[in-house]
Simulated assay, not measured.
Amino acid sequence: MSLVRAELRKLLGLPTAWVGLVLGTLTAPVVVLLNAPYTRRAIAAGTLTDTSDLGLRDLGIGLIGPMVLGVIVVSSEYTSTGQDAPGARQLTATLAAVPDRLRLLVAKTTALVLVVAAQAVVTATATLTLTQVLHGEHAPAPAPARVAAALLYWTLTALLAYALALITRNGVVPLTLLIINSSVVSVSYLLTKVTDLAAYLPDIAGTQMFLRSGDFPVEIAPVTAGLVMTTWVVALLAVGAVLFRRRDT
Score class of each variant (00 low, 15 high):
residue 198 A to W: 12
residue 119 Q to H: 01
residue 139 A to R: 09
residue 90 Q to K: 11
residue 17 A to R: 08
residue 190 L to N: 04
residue 69 L to D: 09
residue 122 V to M: 06
residue 139 A to W: 02
residue 148 A to V: 15
residue 201 L to M: 10
residue 249 T to H: 11
residue 8 L to S: 10
residue 33 L to W: 13
residue 125 T to W: 12
residue 231 T to G: 09
residue 167 I to S: 14
residue 83 Q to Y: 12
residue 211 L to E: 02
residue 103 R to P: 15
residue 34 L to F: 11
residue 18 W to M: 04
residue 176 T to S: 15
residue 142 P to F: 02
residue 216 F to W: 14
residue 164 L to I: 11
residue 164 L to H: 03
residue 58 D to Y: 10
residue 223 V to A: 07
residue 134 L to D: 00
residue 111 A to T: 14
residue 234 V to Q: 02
residue 16 T to P: 08
residue 146 R to W: 11
residue 118 A to H: 03
residue 126 A to K: 01
residue 146 R to C: 07
residue 68 V to A: 07
residue 109 T to R: 08
residue 239 V to I: 15
residue 127 T to C: 01
residue 199 A to G: 15
residue 209 M to T: 08
residue 60 G to N: 05
residue 10 K to E: 07
residue 56 L to D: 00
residue 15 P to K: 04
residue 63 L to M: 13
residue 198 A to C: 10
residue 21 L to H: 01
residue 81 T to A: 11
residue 168 T to R: 08
residue 146 R to D: 09
residue 29 P to A: 10
residue 231 T to A: 05
residue 22 V to S: 09
residue 190 L to R: 10
residue 187 V to Y: 10
residue 163 A to Y: 06
residue 76 S to L: 00
residue 219 E to F: 15
residue 137 E to H: 04
residue 81 T to H: 03
residue 162 Y to K: 14
residue 90 Q to W: 04
residue 29 P to L: 05
residue 221 A to K: 04
residue 80 S to W: 11
residue 223 V to D: 10
residue 115 V to G: 00
residue 244 F to D: 01
residue 103 R to V: 10
residue 104 L to I: 04
residue 136 G to F: 02
residue 37 P to G: 05
residue 184 V to E: 02
residue 27 T to A: 15
residue 83 Q to R: 12
residue 212 R to L: 14
residue 229 M to Y: 02
residue 220 I to H: 15
residue 69 L to T: 09
residue 161 A to G: 13
residue 56 L to R: 01
residue 42 A to I: 14
residue 187 V to S: 07
residue 155 T to Y: 00
residue 94 T to P: 12
residue 151 L to K: 07
residue 182 S to K: 10
residue 185 V to R: 07
residue 186 S to F: 08
residue 29 P to S: 11
residue 122 V to W: 14
residue 110 T to K: 06
residue 163 A to L: 10
residue 185 V to I: 12
residue 75 S to D: 13
residue 216 F to K: 05
residue 114 L to Q: 08
residue 18 W to A: 09
residue 105 L to E: 09
residue 205 A to N: 01
residue 5 R to P: 01
residue 76 S to I: 05
residue 130 L to W: 10
